[in-house]
Computed example of a mutant assay.
Amino acid sequence: MKKVDTNKYTKLTLSLERIRGIITELPHNGHRFVVLYDDKPDKQGYIQTILEDDTLGEQSPYLLETRVYHTEDTFSHYRKSCTKAQEIFPYFEDFYKDIPFSYENWEEVTKEFLED
């Protein structure tokens, strides 16, 4: 089952429609970020979004990140910027429905998260 964390919610099960609403209102609702993940122990990946610059409010692009685990200890981390919340919805919907998506237009940033 998919769970949502924000700075106001922890491990909450929400409908896809409610998740969309939180993302759309991110500049105003005080949540600051949205993380969607699977609470099954064998599924460690997630997708998340924040405003790139919350001081810009509605004018801020959204930063979208996702992590894909290949094994328990290895993963790939991807990032992309989206100008509007509507651009993010298909990715959250696919993740919510366990539909794989392409990372072709994403920046691969795994090295930023690996220990030296």
Score class of each variant (00 low, 15 high):
residue 30 G to S: 07
residue 82 C to F: 10
residue 96 Y to D: 01
residue 83 T to W: 08
residue 112 E to R: 05
residue 62 Y to M: 00
residue 25 E to Q: 14
residue 42 D to F: 10
residue 53 D to K: 04
residue 113 F to D: 02
residue 50 I to V: 15
residue 50 I to R: 13
residue 6 T to R: 06
residue 108 E to F: 14
residue 81 S to L: 15
residue 17 E to R: 12
residue 85 A to N: 06
residue 69 Y to H: 09
residue 105 N to E: 05
residue 17 E to T: 15
residue 85 A to V: 08
residue 74 T to H: 14
residue 89 F to I: 11
residue 67 R to L: 02
residue 15 S to W: 03
residue 28 H to W: 10
residue 25 E to T: 13
residue 17 E to N: 13
residue 69 Y to W: 15
residue 86 Q to R: 10
residue 82 C to L: 14
residue 72 E to P: 02
residue 58 E to S: 10
residue 78 Y to E: 04
residue 97 K to A: 11
residue 14 L to V: 06
residue 74 T to W: 11
residue 101 F to R: 07
residue 57 G to N: 08
residue 11 K to I: 00
residue 2 K to H: 10
residue 42 D to G: 03
residue 72 E to D: 08
residue 78 Y to F: 15
residue 110 T to L: 12
residue 103 Y to E: 06
residue 33 F to T: 03
residue 32 R to Y: 13
residue 73 D to T: 12
residue 114 L to E: 12
residue 91 Y to H: 09
residue 87 E to W: 04
residue 56 L to R: 11
residue 21 G to K: 07
residue 63 L to H: 03
residue 10 T to S: 14
residue 108 E to Y: 12
residue 19 I to R: 10
residue 75 F to V: 06
residue 37 Y to R: 09
residue 41 P to V: 02
residue 100 P to R: 10
residue 67 R to C: 12
residue 39 D to H: 05
residue 79 R to T: 11
residue 26 L to V: 04
residue 66 T to K: 05
residue 87 E to M: 14
residue 22 I to Q: 12
residue 19 I to Y: 15
residue 33 F to E: 09
residue 47 I to F: 00
residue 26 L to Y: 13
residue 35 V to S: 11
residue 91 Y to M: 05
residue 108 E to W: 12
residue 114 L to M: 05
residue 21 G to H: 04
residue 106 W to C: 06
residue 83 T to S: 15
residue 2 K to V: 07
residue 81 S to T: 15
residue 69 Y to V: 03
residue 27 P to E: 03
residue 36 L to C: 02
residue 45 G to N: 04
residue 92 F to K: 03
residue 23 I to E: 09
residue 91 Y to W: 03
residue 96 Y to G: 01
residue 115 E to L: 13
residue 114 L to A: 01
residue 90 P to G: 07
residue 72 E to W: 10
residue 56 L to D: 08
residue 8 K to F: 13
residue 64 L to I: 14
residue 28 H to D: 15
residue 74 T to Y: 14
residue 81 S to V: 14
residue 103 Y to K: 04
residue 37 Y to C: 05
residue 18 R to H: 05
residue 59 Q to P: 00
residue 111 K to G: 01
residue 69 Y to E: 00
residue 38 D to Q: 08
residue 103 Y to T: 12
residue 58 E to V: 13
residue 7 N to F: 08
residue 70 H to L: 15
residue 18 R to V: 15
residue 77 H to P: 00
residue 47 I to M: 04
residue 12 L to G: 01
residue 40 K to G: 02
